[in-house]
Simulated scan of single mutants.
Amino acid sequence: MVQVDAVEQTGQEGAGRRDDGSGIWRAGVRRAIRIGSRPGPWKRGLVLAASALLLGLLMLLHAEIPNRIGGFGSLVETCLPWFGLFIPVLLAGALWRRSASAVVALLLPVVAWLNLFGGLLMDKSESGSDLTVVSHNVGADNPDPAGTARDLAAAGADVLALEEITPQAKPLYEKALAEAYPHHTVQGTVGLWSKLPLSDTRPVDIEMDYGPLADTKPVDVKMAYNRALRTTVATDQGPLAVYVAHLGSVRVLPRNGFWTDSRDRGAQALAKAIAAEHNERVVLLGDLNGTMDDRAFAGITSRLRSAQDAAGDGFGFSWPAKFPVARIDQILVRGVEPESSWLLPATGSDHRPVAAGISW
């Protein structure tokens, strides 16, 4: 009996070993099948790769996006620099999925973004200039107009443009700036203060229409129709035509989408005025309520160039003051050379002041 039991036990152990061997073999086969059925690095993350390609095409072909439905094209162009934030997100996803196709596809949006905005990452400013100009939307709701005026005067600009001047705040600005700027003009809600003489001053009709925003504008702003002016600054190098403008507001509205009608009409009227300007040297200062990537300003940017793009350091976002996300306050020039462009410290306004040094 003992011998039989031993033989049976030995047989069972041998069968168990045989079973263990076949089980390992079957597990290995299943694992090999799973590995073989997995997509390779070029087939993984195809959704990420497609998203990267779409992002790159959107940035490359933004001018082709139609504007007829809800102003979508202008909205994309206003936010265009921020589309670069999707690149590291997609890159993280591509690395997590180990997707070679997604990584390669990301080259398109990277190249597109650098082509559009890479130049803004470099400091292009030069020391020295013949004239310093500043533009600031001082804000109709500014709680301290006199303090804002003192801060601006301390900046030492030769020419200072203010937008959104209310009738109540106008005497405060005039009093606070009188000593530093002996020459000034105010036309409606915009004004220019200068250390140099002014002449040939007149309002510029920019065809304001508040449309669906009529009920949202302060009464004192709506009462003053003029929101643009043109004047000549007498410099040692000759006359300089200076325009100050505050174009219409834009909003994202449920029924209208990205509503820019008033601003766009103002931009067209301002472009016509600049096109008719005979002076070779021109500076445009103001709150244009839009970035220069927006197609609405093509008539202006075809005749003037941005001081920030030519001589700035960074994007120069000016609005809103607490956390700027867009540069809607502009300094544009023709016939003079931008040497530097920068932002001034925040005031009581919801905009940051913008400044530039120009030379002949």
Score class of each variant (00 low, 15 high):
D5C: 09
D5I: 11
A6D: 13
A6V: 11
E8Q: 10
D19A: 14
D20A: 14
G21C: 01
I24D: 12
G36L: 15
G36C: 14
S37G: 05
W42F: 10
R44M: 10
A52F: 07
L55W: 07
L57A: 13
L57S: 09
L58S: 10
L58M: 15
A63Y: 04
E64R: 15
R68G: 15
R68D: 08
G71E: 07
G73A: 09
G73N: 08
S74C: 00
V76E: 04
F83L: 15
L85S: 07
F86K: 01
A94Y: 06
L95Y: 12
W96H: 13
V103N: 02
V103M: 10
V104N: 00
A105H: 07
V110Q: 12
A112M: 00
W113E: 03
L116P: 08
M122Y: 11
L131I: 07
V133W: 08
D144I: 05
P145C: 03
T148R: 10
A149V: 02
A153V: 04
A155Y: 11
G156S: 06
V159Q: 03
A161H: 09
E164M: 05
I165N: 14
I165E: 13
T166L: 11
T166E: 05
L172Y: 00
K175I: 09
A180I: 01
H183E: 07
H184P: 00
Q187I: 09
Q187S: 07
T189E: 10
K195W: 07
L198R: 08
L198E: 05
S199G: 12
R202T: 06
V204N: 02
E207H: 14
Y210E: 15
G211V: 06
T216R: 13
K217P: 01
P218T: 04
D220M: 06
K222N: 05
M223L: 12
A224G: 02
Y225C: 00
A228C: 06
A234F: 02
D236S: 13
D236C: 02
P239V: 04
A245G: 10
G248P: 01
S249F: 02
L253N: 11
R255Y: 00
S262E: 04
R265T: 13
G266V: 05
G266Y: 03
Q268W: 00
A271H: 09
A273Q: 13
I274L: 12
E277M: 02
E277T: 01
R281W: 02
L284T: 04
L285S: 06
L288R: 07
N289C: 11
D293A: 14
D293C: 03
D294E: 15
A296C: 03
I300G: 08
S302Y: 03
G312C: 05
D313C: 03
F315Q: 07
K322R: 14
F323H: 12
R327P: 12
R327K: 14
Q330A: 10
L332V: 04
V333Q: 04
G335A: 12
V336W: 11
E339L: 06
W342G: 05
D350W: 03
D350K: 03
R352G: 07
A355Y: 05
